[in-house]
Design a protein around this nucleic acid. Structure first.
Lengths: 186, 186
DNA sequence: CAATGCATGTAATGCGTTACATGATTCC
DNA sequence: GGAATCATGTAACGCATTACATGCATTG
């Protein structure tokens, strides 16, 4: 049982769904491909944390619907008391920022603009998730309270990322306007 | 050549150093163990992107110092024009937040406090890096400008993370105060 | 008529962590 | 006396991505 397995279990603890369903739901918070998810679900079914049945569909492929078992719920609750590992971030932008002095300013700007566009896309997606949570359910005591704070986690991070991009772009472009004498490495 | 390899090259493009040295420098921005780094450096040396020599030390183990070659510099510059992949974040806290409704409030608070402490540690480390960059070198045209914005990237993110923790803790503890009658101010 | 979405799965490969292996010095 | 730091490396294993495999419906 790795973190992704617990994550899948967590989504299925809310409502039953197919592998495809949970894949789409988990994507914004944990990047994982279907080829990793399907075997983990099958394995959890073998360990009796999940049960499944098939829904036959016409005009669409059949669906395998998973539901969490009592044993699965117990496992999840236990997991909530296990130590929280530090988050892992692998961002090529950090590595590229460190050697931006080797490239030209236009390229540096383009790199940061690319990342800014990414954060814009993400903020749009998080904001549309927010809209689906009614305001009266965004308080402690509702199950949706935790959906709300999770989406806000994404918004806080993406906003900070976007702020950083704008801050950097401001400095890079300001320089462009004043036509510096510094020659880029080539 | 994966991203980590390019990252190691990037650090060695600034100044020569041992595997151990680059490991320590890269850690705050890309988590990687020595067991992954040493083989990559050896591989890059075989591909003539790096050269190395041994320094014999008394009272400490000998050091293998790597330096970047012209071919290595060319490779890095090419890399700067390759498309920037989206960042990857794997944070168990996101998964646990999603099923906090299954556990007790005290446990939820402890989880978020743990993460807050992590961000505090990180901010301390980034701030001490900042202090090592003289203010007059924090402008475009200096090589240190990019060190500066990279450290700021970490600071922006850690600050956002800490803000989120405080925001969540405020809501969780507010609830605690109104539910039980007597709560000591802390 | 090519691409995308729906829907499930396996196989091969690459990336990352843990454990194994060694050994001196310094700090608590 | 035990842990941490310095310093390098290999081996085994687990996690993640890409590619292989199928097939129908819709959209541009």
């Amino acid at each position: 049982m790795n973190t992704l397995s617990y994550g899948l279990l967590a989504f299925l603890a809310r409502e039953p769904g197919s592998g495809y369903d949970v894949m789409l739901k988990i994507q914004p918070f944990w990047q994982a491909k279907h080829s990793q998810i399907y075997p983990l679900l099958a394995q959890m079914e073998e360990n009796e944390l999940l049960t499944s049945y098939w829904i036959k569909q016409s005009e669409k492929p059949d669906k395998k619907i998973y539901s969490i078992t009592d044993s699965g719920i117990r496992k999840l609750k236990e997991w909530m008391y296990m130590p929280l590992p530090d988050p892992i971030t692998r961002d090529e932008l950090s590595m590229k920022t460190f050697c931006m002095w080797m490239t030209d300013r236009d390229n540096a700007i383009e790199i940061v603009e690319t990342r800014k566009a990414y954060f814009t896309r993400r903020l749009e997606s998080f904001n549309s998730m927010l809209q689906k949570i009614p305001e009266e359910k965004r308080t402690f005591g509702n199950r949706e309270f935790y959906d709300y704070i999770l989406v806000q986690k994404g918004i806080f991070n993406a906003t900070a990322g976007q702020d950083w991009c704008n801050w950097v772009l401001g400095m890079l472009k300001e320089q462009q306007a004043t036509e510096s004498q510094v020659q880029p490495a080539q």
